[in-house]
Nucleic acid binder design. Structure first.
Lengths: 229, 229
DNA sequence: CGGCATAGTGTCCAGCGCACACCCGGGTCA
DNA sequence: TGACCCGGGTGTGCGCTGGACACTATGCCG
C-alpha cells in the first residue's frame, strides 16, 4: 500500500480568521493580495504548510510573517477542501480562528511588504477564494463559543471595565444585554479580580477596572464548573 | 508565487469515527489493517483523498469501500496533522464523525477483503497511528453535541421507545437520567410522533413506539427553536 | 390467577433568568 | 462654585424551569 503515497496530492494551506475588538465594532484582519489569482483582493492571512511543522505551528508562523501578530488564542476552525475553491488547482486549507487584543496590534503595516488592515466583520470588501465562507463559519463559531467559554477576554485589554465587557458580548451576540443582570451574573462567577484602579481620562465618573483571573478559572474548570454567558 | 506549488506536499487522508448503538453500549467501527505500518492493528476506516472529490465525498467513499456503510449523519470533526503521526512520512488527516443505526449494519464482514468490527468505545484494542486520540476527540464531540442537537436519533431505529431513547442519552452522557423528567422534557418539545404501535416480542407490558419528526424539527429550527437535552 | 417486569404518570420546591428605574460621582462649563 | 451632563453602579419581584421523588397500569408467563 505504500504506493498509495504516489497518488497526486492536494496542496495544503492554513488560513487564519483573526478577530479584534475596536470600541464598538468587531474587526477581522485582512491582507491585500499582491499576486494572481485575486491580485488586489483582500484575503485572510495564510499560506502553505511546511513538511516539518504542525498545523498549529503553520498557522502561527504565517500569521506572524504576514502581520506580526502572535495571537493569545488560536484554535482550529474547519477544513475547507472543495475542488475548485482555488483556481490554480487543488488546494485544501485548514482554517484557524484567532482572538487578539486590538490595542496591541494597532493598524500598523505588515512586517513584510504586503498591506494588512482591520475591517468591520459586518462590512468587508469582497474576499478572495472562499474566504467569505470561512469568515462566516468563524463568526458562527465565535458567537457560539463566547457564551460557554471565557474566550471573550482575549479581545479586551488586560484591565477592562464591566461596561467594556458587556459591550463586547453585545457586539458579538448582536443583541442588547441588561446591565444589572449582566453584572450580577459575571461577578457571581467570581472570575474577575476587582482592581484598585479606575479608568482614566474620561469626562464622567470613572469606572472600576477588572482583570480576568485565568488561574482561578482553570481551578474552577477542573472542579466541573461551567462558564455560561 | 505560483512556485509555492512546487513545495513538497503532505499526503492527505480522511478517517471516519463511526458510532453505533447496541442495546446498552456505544460502539465504534474499526478495520483491521492488513499492511504495514501497524499491520494487524485495528484502525479507523479511512484513506487518501482524491484530487477530484471534496473532503466529505472522500469520507463517504472510503467508508463505503471499507465497510459498506452509508451513514445518515456525517460531519467533519477535526484535522490532525502533527509531523510524525504517520511513520511513513508526513500525512495530514481530516477526521470525520458519523452516526449510523447499528441495526442496519450488523457485524457483517467488509465488502473488500479487510476485516471490520464494532467495538465498545470504552474498551477498544490498541489503535494504529493517533487514532485513539481521534476517537477521544470524537467522543467529546458526541457528548457535547447530543445535548443541543437532535442527532442522537440517528443512532436508533426509525421507530423506538422512550426508554430506548433515554438509555441512549444515559450511555452517551455517562450519567443516569430521571425517567419522568426525561419524558416530560422530550415530549414537551413536540418533536416525536406518537405511533399506534407498541414494541413486539417482549415478556412484559409493551412500550409505545415513537418516531422522530425531522420535518417538524426543521420548521421549529427556522423559527428559532433550540433543542436542548 | 398470582407474580414479575417494565410502562407510564404528576407534584412540589428551590433556584435562575429576566424585566425593570433610580441615585451616585466626577468632570465640565458658564 | 454650582448646575448639569454623562455614564457608573446598585436590588427586588415574578414566572418558569430543572430536578427530586413513588406509585399504579398492563401484559406475559408459569
Amino acid at each position: 500500500m505504500s504506493h498509495t503515497y504516489e497518488y497526486p496530492r492536494p496542496a495544503l494551506t492554513v488560513d487564519c480568521v483573526v478577530f479584534g475588538l475596536d470600541e464598538d465594532d468587531l474587526k477581522v484582519l485582512l491582507i491585500k493580495r499582491g499576486v494572481e489569482p485575486f491580485a488586489g483582493r483582500w484575503a485572510l492571512p495564510g499560506g502553505f504548510v511546511r513538511m516539518d511543522e504542525s498545523l498549529d505551528e503553520a498557522a502561527r508562523r504565517e500569521l506572524e510573517e504576514e502581520s506580526g501578530i502572535r495571537p493569545a488564542h488560536l484554535e482550529q476552525l474547519y477544513t475547507f477542501g472543495a475542488p475548485g475553491r482555488d483556481p490554480r488547482g487543488r488546494v485544501v486549507t485548514v482554517a484557524y480562528f484567532a482572538l487578539v487584543k486590538l490595542t496591541d496590534h494597532r493598524p500598523h503595516a505588515a512586517t513584510d511588504a504586503r498591506e494588512a488592515a482591520w475591517f468591520s466583520v459586518w462590512d468587508t470588501p469582497k474576499l478572495a477564494f472562499d474566504h467569505a465562507e470561512i469568515l462566516g463559519t468563524a463568526l458562527q463559531r465565535l458567537k457560539g463559543k463566547v457564551r460557554y467559554q471565557p474566550i471573550g477576554f482575549e479581545l479586551l485589554p488586560p484591565k477592562f471595565t464591566l461596561t467594556q465587557l458587556q459591550r463586547l458580548y453585545e457586539i458579538v451576540l448582536e443583541r442588547p444585554l441588561d446591565k444589572r443582570n449582566f453584572r450580577k451574573k459575571i461577578l457571581a462567577m467570581d472570575l474577575l479580580e476587582e482592581l484598585d484602579e479606575v479608568e482614566q481620562d474620561v469626562s464622567h465618573r470613572a469606572a472600576r477596572l477588572y482583570r480576568f483571573d485565568h488561574r482561578k478559572y482553570k481551578q474552577l474548570e477542573k472542579a466541573g464548573f461551567n462558564f455560561e454567558l
